[in-house]
Simulated scan of single mutants.
Amino acid sequence: MILGLDVGGTQTDAVLVEGREVVRAVKTPTGGDLLETLRASLDETLSGISPERIERTAFSTTMATNAVVQDRLDRAGMIVSAGPGMNPEWFAVGPAFHVVKGCLDHQGIEAVPLDRKQVMDVADGIRKQGIRHLGVAGKFSVHNPGHELQVKEWVGRSFSHVALGHRVSGILNFPRRITTTYLNAALHDLHHGFAAALLQILKEKNL
């Protein structure tokens, strides 16, 4: 059997599939306690089913999409370095968007070094706003992540999570990478909570 589980903002859907047939389908309201929602859903879905019969599990969720659409993101700061070309301020996102000195050229070679004091001051200002998540994006970091890694080394311990642009996208499209990095930072706790609840319930069900 295959167990499928989809966690939505309103309903959590679970199905058991055997061969080409859906043998059980359960809808459970998605409550504020995600672990309890998953427990209620799987208690009903797996009632009378031995864990050994579950050959595979598949999971999905629209929780992140819902958070974006409903503007329920955690607050996240952004530290961005760009250099010549389009002004990254055009693509500012979040409550604390900062462009700092320092840049790489299109080959990933350092053209202007980062200013450590400026980066530290910017990070300190973000922390003073009560923001615990940070995104760092450099224009050509996909060719050389050195500047992003340097920023994380300088200020990373001051934040609960630091998202780095070169790790969330390998594409040069800088505006999209800024937004993707910001969303990665702002959605980190939501995804972490989902993964933790999922792992816990799978352990409870011996799956």
Rank of each mutant, 00 (worst) to 15 (best):
A196V: 14
V17I: 15
I79H: 03
R132K: 15
L149I: 04
L187M: 14
L104S: 02
A14W: 04
I109F: 07
Q200D: 15
F91P: 06
W154P: 05
E36S: 15
I109T: 11
A197W: 14
H133A: 01
T12L: 05
M86D: 11
G32D: 15
L183C: 05
D74F: 01
R127S: 10
A111G: 09
G4P: 13
E52W: 01
A195F: 15
V112R: 12
P175A: 02
Q70F: 04
L16D: 08
D105L: 01
N173Q: 04
N206C: 07
L73G: 04
I126N: 04
H98M: 02
G8Q: 14
E148Q: 08
M86G: 07
A186F: 02
D13Q: 10
D105A: 08
R24V: 13
V17Q: 13
R157V: 03
S141T: 13
G156I: 06
G108N: 09
L183G: 01
G94T: 09
A163I: 02
L207V: 10
P95M: 04
H98G: 02
V99G: 10
R56E: 15
P88E: 01
L42V: 09
W90M: 05
F140L: 02
A195T: 13
P145E: 06
T30Y: 05
N87Y: 02
V26D: 10
T62M: 03
G48E: 11
K101Q: 14
G156S: 11
I79A: 03
E21A: 13
V69E: 10
G108K: 09
N144M: 06
I49D: 09
V17E: 03
T65I: 15
R56Q: 12
R56L: 09
P29E: 07
A82N: 10
K101V: 11
D105W: 05
L16A: 04
L16C: 07
Q200A: 15
R72F: 05
A186E: 01
L5C: 14
P175N: 03
L5N: 10
K203N: 10
N173M: 00
I49K: 10
D13K: 12
K203G: 07
T28H: 06
L104F: 01
Q70K: 10
R167P: 02
V112H: 10
A185F: 04
T30L: 08
D124P: 00
G170D: 12
V168N: 04
F140V: 00
I49M: 12
A185K: 00
L46I: 09
L35Y: 15
F174N: 01
Q11T: 10
L104C: 00
T57G: 13
V100E: 00
L172M: 11
Y182V: 00
T30R: 06
R56P: 07
A25Q: 12
E153T: 08
R75L: 12
Q118M: 10
I2Q: 08
L199C: 14
G9P: 07
E153F: 02
H98W: 04
L38H: 08
L190T: 14
T30I: 15
V112Q: 14
D13F: 05
V155A: 05
L3E: 07
R177A: 00
E153A: 15
Q11G: 02
F91K: 07
D6Q: 13
V142D: 03
A82R: 01
H191M: 15
R53H: 11
V69T: 06
R132A: 11
R132V: 05
